[in-house]
Design a protein around this nucleic acid. Structure first.
Length: 646
DNA sequence: GGGCCCGCAGGG
DNA sequence: CCCTGCGGGCCC
């Protein structure tokens, strides 16, 4: 499969790895503004077309998705259905022979996909409509029911007509005078079954007079739906808990990649702009930013992921604004009629939506991102509602052990693995925890002695040292030099004392350096934990040769990682986690052999996601009971670049 | 604030 | 047709 990837922020082509120097070889996508290395494209545009060129990801947007047969029949000038709608609406508006009411009716018919009355034919569909019209007519307007509501006495009315009736203070059925319950008056529910039948009966089978084809059927199909989410008769709860979606306002296909542009927005003609906010997921869906009501990932395993929602559903997520780490879906017990579950019961795999993320990573497709107010720990989440945050790209996908690995209770949610697979599981969990602790401790190494700090001092420049190491570096130098000259005493001169690491003057700090108690407490806690977990291998406080310890540990992880896997009988690629930086050549370097949970990392243009992150290090797992996460780095293309109308 | 439950939407 | 799913509202 051909892989198309853009240049990264440093101007290095992610396909060939070459730093693109020549302007002639750089191509800028006219849609998402990403830079591309033209020699690495299979079909680079001619120089004259470069200004209007769209990258492989964004070109999905403009390709006419109609079936081949329909395409063949279409005019040579390829236009999207959205453009056709807009053109048709404008033609109606421009027709001076029509009254405003007639224009409105024609517009409605156009958007509903209905034929104009003068070109109605005697199709079978109309026959069906006639049959429906006899039974499904509203007692008020005598027309075919529009968004039907049904009273307890069994009579049906258009929602609009019914509301008009009750607003007049009427509380009895217009047909049989039976009382209408106040609950129905307050919140009438659409009879979804009737609504569906009527909509289907109205549906044009093929093309219609507007020239719209199947590609926009999904749009046409929903135009009869209410503007807002509604509860069907079936729903046991009011409000949006069990609500059905209101109409989709945009013409984008459900599998449309990239931004929602003005041409997809016949209603407002502005598209969906970065920062647009909706009250909830159902409203967000109506504007096409993220279609699934609950699921966090919109996509297809064979095609890619079109959008993701950050809603705080997975605690492994990290949001850094311009990039974030996103946990894949799955691995959770949804029995008992649950839709979500905080507990990570078992491992995630690269299937379904997770595979879709991987596909998008491989192909470099743009991913729409929405953030929900529900991400409490994110500084970038909106205070209210759901906000569209623009186009990102998936940088990497990988798997790691999730947070819950540490807290889980042991139970098998699926078939228990063969004994050979879990032979050394307990031991390995211990080792894993121990190496985590060690790794953290390593972060607290003194920049002078390279051992874990004793009495840590944090200099104002940001460097940290053992108290004895730092003070020892200046020996017994006094802080000032007394000066005298010509028989008179001069003002004492401050002696400059530079930080051993960064050479910044820290002499003021050294006058009365205070120990960083917080760091010391953490170091003590970590060391205590290490001692508890391993009484045989004592690590002396500040005195042990931690550098050597860690070196050994890294060896064990990088080299022995494979061995560990072999012991566990699990065929993991060793190249994961800590070695995330190893994936630079292949941002989509991932492992199929699933064992755990999946996380996605997402990034904005202008920065690289950390190539190596604390906590992403424990990719090797020792059995399917560990929650490894796969991370996919996704980078934002341009925070404003996908604003509609750009 | 957490647990529970539900219809809906979409993938496969 | 079954399964999955980073919702949302109510109850405790």
């Amino acid at each position: 499969m051909a892989v198309f990837l853009p240049c990264n922020d440093a101007g290095i082509c992610m396909v060939c790895g070459v730093a693109v120097q020549s302007e002639d070889e750089l191509l800028r996508c006219s849609t998402c503004v990403t830079l591309w290395h033209s020699p690495c494209l299979s079909n680079p545009p001619a120089v004259s077309d470069a200004a209007t060129w769209s990258c492989p990801g964004c070109s999905v947007v403009v390709v006419d998705p109609a079936p081949a047969a329909a395409r063949a029949a279409a005019p040579a000038t390829a236009t999207t259905g959205g453009e056709l709608i807009v053109a048709a609406v404008r033609a109606i508006e421009a027709d001076t022979t029509l009254s405003n009411a007639e224009k409105a009716r024609r517009r409605q018919n156009l958007l509903a996909g209905r034929s104009a009355p003068d070109d109605v034919d005697d199709s079978a569909e109309d026959g069906v409509l006639n049959i429906l019209g006899e039974s499904f007519s509203c007692a008020f307007c005598l027309e075919l029911l529009d968004r039907p509501v049904t009273t307890p006495c069994g009579h049906n009315f258009c929602l609009k007509c019914f509301n008009g009736w009750t607003r007049k203070g009427k509380r009895a059925c217009a047909k049989c005078r039976q009382p209408i319950p106040s609950k129905m008056v307050q919140q009438p529910r659409i009879n979804s079954k009737m609504d569906e039948v009527i909509r289907k009966a109205r549906m044009p089978k093929t093309t219609n007079s507007t020239g719209l084809v199947d590609s926009h059927r999904h749009y046409i199909q929903n135009v009869d739906k209410p503007d807002r989410a509604y509860t069907t008769k079936r729903a046991k709860r009011p409000g949006k808990a069990n609500a059905s979606s209101g109409k989709i306002f945009v013409t984008t296909e459900p599998d449309h990649f990239g931004p929602i542009l003005p041409k997809h927005d016949p209603m407002r003609e502005i598209g969906v702009k970065v920062g647009e906010t909706w009250a909830d997921r159902l409203e967000c869906r109506q504007w096409g930013a993220h279609f699934p009501h609950i699921a966090g990932i919109a996509g297809q395993s064979g095609k890619g992921a079109q959008s993701v929602a950050l809603s705080g559903g997975y605690e492994d997520d990290e949001d850094h604004g311009d990039w974030f780490l996103y946990t894949g879906s799955g691995g959770r017990d949804l029995s008992g009629n649950k839709r979500t579950n905080k507990e990570q019961g078992f491992d995630q795999t690269f299937r379904n939506m997770n595979e879709a993320l991987r596909q998008s990573c491989l192909s470099g497709h743009p991913v729409r991102v929405v953030r929900s107010h529900k991400v409490k720990h994110s500084l970038y989440a909106p205070k209210l509602g759901v906000r569209y945050d623009g186009i990102y790209r998936i940088e990497k996908c990988w798997r790691k052990i999730g947070i819950q690995e540490r807290e889980r209770c042991w139970k098998w949610m699926r078939d228990e693995p063969q004994p050979t697979r879990i032979k050394n599981a307990g031991k390995q969990v211990q080792r894993r925890a121990r190496s985590n602790t060690k790794r953290l401790l390593k972060e607290f190494s003194c920049s002078i002695c390279c051992k874990v700090m004793t009495e840590p001092l944090s200099a104002p420049c940001g460097d940290n040292f053992c108290k004895t190491c730092l003070l020892g570096a200046y020996d017994k130098q006094s802080s000032v030099r007394e000066r005298s000259g010509g028989g008179r005493t001069l003002r004492a001169q401050k002696i400059v004392k530079r930080c051993p690491s960064c050479r910044i003057d820290i002499s003021d700090f050294l006058v009365d350096p205070q120990i960083n108690r917080d760091i010391m407490n953490v170091i003590e806690s970590l060391q205590l934990k290490l001692e508890e977990g391993n009484t045989t291998k004592d690590i002396p406080y500040g005195g042990g040769d931690m550098a050597e310890e860690f070196h050994d540990d890294e060896q064990e992880e990088n080299d022995g990682g494979g061995m560990e896997m072999d012991e566990a009988g699990c065929s993991f690629d060793v190249e994961e986690g800590d070695n995330a930086e190893d994936h630079e050549d292949n941002p989509a370097d991932m492992d199929d052999d699933a064992c755990g949970e999946i996380v996605v990392g997402i990034k904005e243009e202008g920065q690289q996601p950390d190539q190596k992150r604390k906590g992403d290090t424990d990719i090797g797992t020792d059995g399917p009971n560990k929650r490894t996460t796969t991370r996919v780095g996704v980078g934002q293309q341009n925070s404003k670049g996908d604003e509609a109308g750009m």
